[in-house]
Design a protein around this nucleic acid. Structure first.
Length: 227
DNA sequence: CTCCCGATAT
DNA sequence: ATATCAGGAG
């Protein structure tokens, strides 16, 4: 075991520094060519891999263009187009409803405030933060998804469980200029090394500063600290 | 809290 | 077989 850093603030800075070196080109992996496509891609990405979302949106974005076409489409047909995505019935409804609202209340444009975005169907704080950051270049929070939640807790940066509580702590602990990058780094590292089920601690650049590090010898998961 | 829900890795 | 995937609504 490595010596734990004194404060969680130092821990956060150290994590950002090391992961920056490990993933220098870390950025959003969803594919889109305008603000509406970004919004739709992020709605679809809930509990689904970005890889699958990109595979489906490639066809979806060729078939539909603009909020008018999504608002006008038959919801069952849209659900068919999304039938390999998680929760496709719900998401078809979210997309159609959000596009109706965008047309009726926002002049056909994707909103640029947290309140307006979270009023859209299927858009919570996480989705809104992603759209604010990548569509409008507004960073007023930290995107907390499943990877950010898992890594922040494993690394001892937070002990909170609710995403909103984790976001508040990260906003205090992560240097302000790195809020956006912190999320991308957690996602890249979470996918490649610090996976949910079987993290590869033997190949982790954070192992010596991670309180959850397993060690490469024979330590059984049942007797140690729970993940 | 439950429900939504297909593809993939283990 | 089961856990997990850039969550959100009711």
């Amino acid at each position: 075991m490595g010596t734990p850093l004194e404060s969680r603030e130092e821990q956060a800075a150290e994590v950002v520094d090391r992961l920056e070196s490990e993933y220098p080109d870390s950025t959003i992996s969803l594919r889109y060519s305008n603000r509406l496509e970004l919004l739709i891609a992020v709605i679809l990405s809930a509990q689904c891999t970005d890889e699958r979302v990109n595979k489906e949106t490639k066809h979806l974005f060729e078939k539909y263009d603009g909020p008018e076409e999504y608002a006008a489409v038959d919801e069952e047909e849209l659900a068919e187009d999304l039938n390999s995505i998680t929760y496709y019935n719900s998401k078809a409804g979210y997309i159609k409803s959000s596009c109706e609202t965008i047309l009726e209340e926002h002049d056909g444009e994707v909103p640029d405030t947290m309140d307006e975005l979270t009023e859209l169907s299927g858009v919570g704080r996480k989705t809104a933060n992603v759209v604010l950051q990548h569509a409008h270049d507004v960073v007023e929070g930290v995107v907390v998804d499943t990877h950010v939640q898992r890594l922040s807790r494993r690394l001892g940066i937070t002990e909170k469980k609710r995403p909103e509580a984790i976001e508040q702590e990260l906003m205090e602990l992560v240097p302000e200029g790195y809020w956006q990058q912190f999320t991308h780094l957690c996602i890249d590292h979470g996918r490649a090394v610090c996976t949910a089920r079987n993290p590869d601690c033997s190949d982790c650049v954070l192992a010596d500063v991670c309180p959850s590090e397993k060690g490469d010898s024979e330590i059984d998961l049942a007797s140690g600290e729970p993940w």
